[in-house]
Nucleic acid binder design. Sequence first.
DNA 1: TATGAATGAGTTTTCATTCAT
DNA 2: GATGAATGAAAACTCATTCAT
Lengths: 193, 193, 193, 193
Amino acid sequence: MRAALKTLTQEGFFGTTARAIARNGKLNQALIFYHFGSVDRLLLAALDATSRDRLDRYRAGLAEITRISDLVEAMARLYKEDVVSGHITAVQEMVAGGSSVPALRSEVLARMEPWVAFAREVIGRVTAGTVVENLVPIDDLAFSSVALYFGIETITNLGGDRSRAETLFATGRKFAPIADALLQSATWVGDTA
Amino acid sequence: MRAALKTLTQEGFFGTTARAIARNGKLNQALIFYHFGSVDRLLLAALDATSRDRLDRYRAGLAEITRISDLVEAMARLYKEDVVSGHITAVQEMVAGGSSVPALRSEVLARMEPWVAFAREVIGRVTAGTVVENLVPIDDLAFSSVALYFGIETITNLGGDRSRAETLFATGRKFAPIADALLQSATWVGDTA
Amino acid sequence: MRAALKTLTQEGFFGTTARAIARNGKLNQALIFYHFGSVDRLLLAALDATSRDRLDRYRAGLAEITRISDLVEAMARLYKEDVVSGHITAVQEMVAGGSSVPALRSEVLARMEPWVAFAREVIGRVTAGTVVENLVPIDDLAFSSVALYFGIETITNLGGDRSRAETLFATGRKFAPIADALLQSATWVGDTA
Amino acid sequence: MRAALKTLTQEGFFGTTARAIARNGKLNQALIFYHFGSVDRLLLAALDATSRDRLDRYRAGLAEITRISDLVEAMARLYKEDVVSGHITAVQEMVAGGSSVPALRSEVLARMEPWVAFAREVIGRVTAGTVVENLVPIDDLAFSSVALYFGIETITNLGGDRSRAETLFATGRKFAPIADALLQSATWVGDTA
DNA sequence: TATGAATGAGTTTTCATTCAT
DNA sequence: GATGAATGAAAACTCATTCAT
């Protein structure tokens, strides 16, 4: 599975063939089929494992957070981890690549749902007690957050240039205090709405 | 090119082989190579054409718009066109699929840039004269918009279920007037920040 | 198809792989799939062609025959043709080999039925006007003849020794006149039965 | 060996791989090689055992028989046993499948010879003291009987339809008394010929 | 322009068999 | 005796691409 993830980041979804994985992990092609039955199942297992793993980290990293400014800080830290570990590229390859193989779509989708649920939980916590909570459908926000995240990663991956993502975090850092202030001045929104 | 786009929506990027395209368009495989040199170049040409075509429509549809509520209406209309024409699935397949083939990445990225530029233009126009114009980096907004759009399409394509996207437009419609009001009351942000 | 039949006789059903056929016919492996879609379909097409071909020869060779002694002579001649052409080994390999691949069974069976029908026709002609005609179910005789033929070929193929089959023709030659006499003395059987 | 025979009947000769046998018998693949050295040797051992076993039953069942009508009855009973036990399908798969693997041919042939010898013995007993004994080569009859038996089984296996074989037994039952009468009226053949 | 046939390199997958434990 | 993991060779099949016509 480690070899599969590595190949995914190095060669792209398309280049992640049984042969390439075997070469990368210095193991026998047939082993993939012995243990996983097919390349697809290996890839899904790898996605499963890495996704679960990262979700745990995210859960831990965002456990206590209730303010947007803290959220941005923590996310930036976790995102850097994702980048360094290569996890993010592998996942992006699986999601984008998997979306172009009809047979993989539902499996990949199922592995994204925990992230949407997690986003819902965090957003719920951050907006708890503010007007946003009653006003904006949290489901939409959660879905959009995950979509935005993968959209950014896809474009980032296209250009091989991570600076865009970092600029966004910088902008996020700048506006987080404003957002926090807005969220807390609960009455103001009531006036306008 | 029409056959290529159709195959892209029907079989996914991975299933869009020379044979599949030829079958779909009832033409000879070799013609693809005669006219385009390679499958990849046909795919890029198709993306090019459809992308240019749609960009023209979007430009026309959003030409006069300066308010977010109008923007949401117009976008919903254009999005529906994209869905009906199948354009959107084909493009999503090309972007997601192409992002997993290293050799295609830069070409695909180049075809996305006009959209980011267009988003910048529209956002610039809508926020012109408001505080947002000076406060928020429009580049980031434009990039994020396009990323969000493709992210949503990717997840939509995974589930084969367009309802999420429609829910989002509904939510957008609900909040557009609030956003417009906020943008116009240029003074308050200064107060709060 | 010629290469397939040749490989079938030389290597056995099991050894008749795409590679072996290609080697034998000095052609590219992929051609098999280009023209026939799969090895199985090539094999069935070859069986089809050779079977149709031989059935024509048998039909011509046994067209006028009404006596068992003539039948034995003609059959011996046709059998020798089968042996020399290699047709018989190829067919035996297909029938025996095909019977051990569930997916091929019904296809192979369908290609044997014309032979049973043909046997029925010949036996009907030879026994026409004799007591046998009314007494023995011709279907059973026809089925048994074909079964016997393939059974003999299977065992012959096991030993690689054709002498058994030839001994049987010799014995057949010896008893054919007796059988003819019996068939014509229609009354005698009536006495005994 | 039991697992091997079961797999043979369920999956066909071609589908009887080490893995399939192991799965079927809920045992480890490697055990096949530990105990038998190779899949082929296991298959031959299984054929050996079941063949010996059935030959004993046939010997016992046909021990006292001297008349064709009794023979048909006894054979019908034994055949039904073969069918119920699955033995017959397994053996047919081995003979037909084995005949398409050059390396197995002689081994399979060797395991068929006891049956030819047994047929010779029974036919000899049944025709003892009649003209047939001196007139017809018993070897040919014995060989043909076994060949017919396997031929019928092969076609039966192709269609998955045992009714043909049963019809044949019914016909056999009908004609057995006539055959017995013919055999006993030893004089007539001389008269006619 | 268009076509049918060909090709070579590649793919996933399966197989019998081995090996260390 | 038994097991899980490993291996190399070979299977069927697909692909983009070329070529002669």
